[in-house]
Each structure stands twice: as C-alpha cells, then as structure tokens.
C-alpha cells in the first residue's frame, strides 16, 4: 500500500480583511494524496484551489486543522525545517510564474539549489538540463521579460523540477500555453509521475487536462464537492 505524500485533515484557512470581515477561503478540507499519485484539482474561480495548493506546499499555514507532509506534522516544524521541506520535498509551479525579472532563466531555475548549498557549476548544469527538458534549451540566458508568457510558464516548471521533488504542485501549469505546448507540459508531468514516481497535483480549468489525470478533486466554496479517487480519510483518522 502507498504512503501518503501529503495529507490534510479538516483544514480551514480564513482571511481577516480590514474592518473585521472574515473570508473563509477553505472551510474544512480533508484530503490525502499518496506517493506516485496524479491528481487534478478543479473548480470555479475563487473556490479556494490556490489556497489549498499553498497549504499543501507549506507556503502557508492552515487556520485550523492539521497537515502532514512526508510523514511530518507541519505545525510541529520550525521555520528552518519548513524551509528544508519546501526546498527538498516540494516543487511548486505558481499560477503567476513568480520569476525574478532581473536574472536569467538559468539563474531563476537554479535558485532552489542555491538554498541547498549546491555548487555553482552543478547548479548551472542542472538548471540547463531542466530547461532543456521543458524545451527551452535555446533560451538559457534570456531574462523573464524577454520571454513569452508560455516560455515563462515553462521556466517556472523547470524551476519546480530542478530540485527533484517527491511532490509537485502545479497551479494551472497550462493556463498560458497553446494546445501543443500544453500537451508537451502535460506529457512532461506525466512522465515525471510514471518514471520517477513523483506525486503530481495540478490545478486546471481545462477539462481535457483534468481528464488525463487519474484522479479529479472538485472544489466549490472552500469545500471538496467531489473526489473520484478519495481514500477514506475517516478510516485513516481512526487507523493507528
């Protein structure tokens, strides 16, 4: 039986706005994704998909509820351990790319390795390999501002791959790509999943992309509406 790669138990996340208004982005989500799984999160805009992804990627802490990643309870980790988890276990593709505009594609991709203490030559080598794997071998020294939207998207994916994570979280990785590039990116993610056993969770609005995933999780108003591959979280919470 597979190990859980990431597990959320009755997780909520609410934001308090100025004036005391509270927005519940997630209002009680339980979810378990196993190692080697390939899941798509779908749902209308504003339903809480990105919020959930950020929690799963340890970029944010839940308001209530528990999160376990690679066997560790996130709330018990300090800043340094959390940083290490983000660096070594999780690869994150942001909905809005989040590339640094002043440095080259290679330098952007190599950045996670900087915080791992990898030597410069090896960093550049691995960044180049990652960029080549997303079809950007000819754009190594371009700055993000000198790249098209789709190319920036692929740089962001290369950056998530470069650290060889065991959990890849991609927030709309094909949102800015044409059909062909979208298919290429999907192939890449599927290949990572099948060949390297990386657990992949992606958010998408594209039904074709969602259809290719082995599991679909539908979110609405901060709650899971349907999940066609759900493990019984209730079972697990009573299991020893």
């Amino acid at each position: 039986m597979s190990e859980p790669a990431v597990e959320a138990i009755d997780v909520t996340r609410s934001y308090e706005l100025e004036g005391g208004v509270v927005v519940n982005a997630l209002s009680g989500v339980s979810l378990r994704i196993d190692t080697g799984e390939y899941a798509a999160i779908i749902g209308p805009s504003g339903s809480g998909k990105s919020t959930l992804m950020h929690l799963l990627g340890c970029l944010d802490r839940p308001t209530t509820g528990a999160l376990r990643i690679a066997g560790a309870d996130v709330s018990s980790l300090d800043d340094t351990q959390l940083a290490q988890l983000r660096n070594e276990t999780v690869g994150f593709v942001f909905q809005s790319f989040q590339l640094l505009p002043r440095i080259s594609a290679t330098a952007n991709v190599a950045m996670p390795l900087v915080y791992r203490g990898t030597g410069r030559a090896e960093r550049i080598e691995r960044a180049r390999t990652a960029l080549e794997s997303v079809g950007l071998g000819h754009r190594l020294d371009h700055r993000p501002t000198q790249l098209s939207g789709g190319e920036q998207q692929r740089v962001a994916i290369a950056r998530a791959l470069v650290s060889q994570p065991t959990l890849l979280l991609a927030d709309e990785p094909t949102g800015n790509l044409d059909t062909q590039s979208g298919v290429d990116v999907m192939r890449l993610l599927e290949q990572l999943n099948t060949d390297h056993g990386v657990a992949v969770i992606l958010v998408t609005h594209d039904h074709e992309v969602a259809a290719r995933a082995r599991r679909r999780i539908r979110i609405r108003d901060g709650l899971i509406e349907s999940d066609d591959g759900a493990h019984s979280v209730a079972d697990q919470s009573v299991a020893p």
Binding site: G57, L59, D79, T80, A83, Q84, R86, N87, E88, F92, F94, Q98, L100, M111, P112, Y115, R116, R159, S163
Partner: peptide, 16 residues
C-alpha cells in the same frame, strides 16, 4: 517583498 516570498517558497530560511 515578492522576491523574499519567492526565495522563502523555494527553500530560503529566515537566516538566509
């Protein structure tokens, strides 16, 4: 701020 957030998301520690 965004750069800092990104660096932290990619594994930078407070100390870094």
């Amino acid at each position: 701020t965004r750069e800092i957030g990104l660096r932290k998301a990619l594994g930078a520690r407070q100390r870094d």
